[in-house]
Computed example of a mutant assay.
Amino acid sequence: MEYLVTMTTRVPDGTTPDAVDDVRAREAAHTRELAARGRVLRLWRPPLAPGEWRTLGLFTADDADDLERTLTSMPLRVWRTDEVTPLGAHPNDPGAGTVPPVPGTTEHLVTFTLDVPAGASPDTVAERTAGEARRTRELAAQGRLVRLWSLPTPGQALGLWQHADVDELYDDLRSLPLAAWLTVETVPLTPHPSDPGERA
């Protein structure tokens, strides 16, 4: 099972720079080990406020307890709090490893919330849902939609996208057949030095 983990680190006051460097070096080495075992798939940095130290990670684990053991094994956990979001299968997901990284693009995580109007007929919903599946396959084939997961909240999904610029991303989001019924929240991602994903 896959999980998105928001990792927020707060270094205690009085911690020496040498101690910080030591923990970070051990964290990087252990992350490489976890990546080699297929436990850490991706790491990103979201936009950060001054003084913030935060990472988004895509992990795999057998279950929540197994994930907790992995997170506890990471050296930075002594200063870190983790927020875990389980990711479910989505019928329109291109699949892990299907869409290769495209050099020169920026990745975004996009949260979708679907709100079908009360008066929408079942035929209209079915038609738009089928159109959504076709369009997401097209966007994956174009190397833009990388992954798609369902979220625990009904009607919500999470997508990983890569685009040359944000205008291209929003053009693609507007092209989705369900766009009129979707609320979207986008988070631009920057590379993390320990990210095991291959991007140039």
Rank of each mutant, 00 (worst) to 15 (best):
F59H: 14
L139S: 03
T9F: 08
L67D: 05
P177L: 11
V84H: 00
L151W: 01
P46T: 03
A28H: 13
N92F: 10
L67E: 03
R69M: 10
R39S: 10
T70C: 12
G197T: 13
T186S: 14
D18N: 08
T186K: 04
T129W: 11
R69Y: 00
T105A: 11
A49V: 02
E132S: 11
L67K: 05
E198V: 13
P152F: 05
A141D: 15
D167V: 06
P75Y: 08
G143L: 06
E127V: 07
V125N: 02
E127P: 02
P17S: 12
L182Y: 00
A61C: 11
E198L: 11
F59R: 09
T72F: 07
E127K: 10
D123M: 06
L145I: 05
E2H: 15
D171C: 01
W44L: 00
L56R: 04
V187K: 01
E68T: 13
L34N: 10
D172N: 12
R37C: 08
V116E: 10
L48R: 15
T190P: 04
T186V: 14
V110K: 09
H163W: 03
P91W: 09
E83Y: 04
G155S: 10
D171Q: 13
P193D: 07
Q162G: 02
P50L: 03
W44M: 01
V116T: 15
P91S: 12
H163M: 03
D93R: 07
S73T: 05
R42I: 01
A130F: 08
L48H: 07
R144M: 06
T72Y: 06
L151I: 02
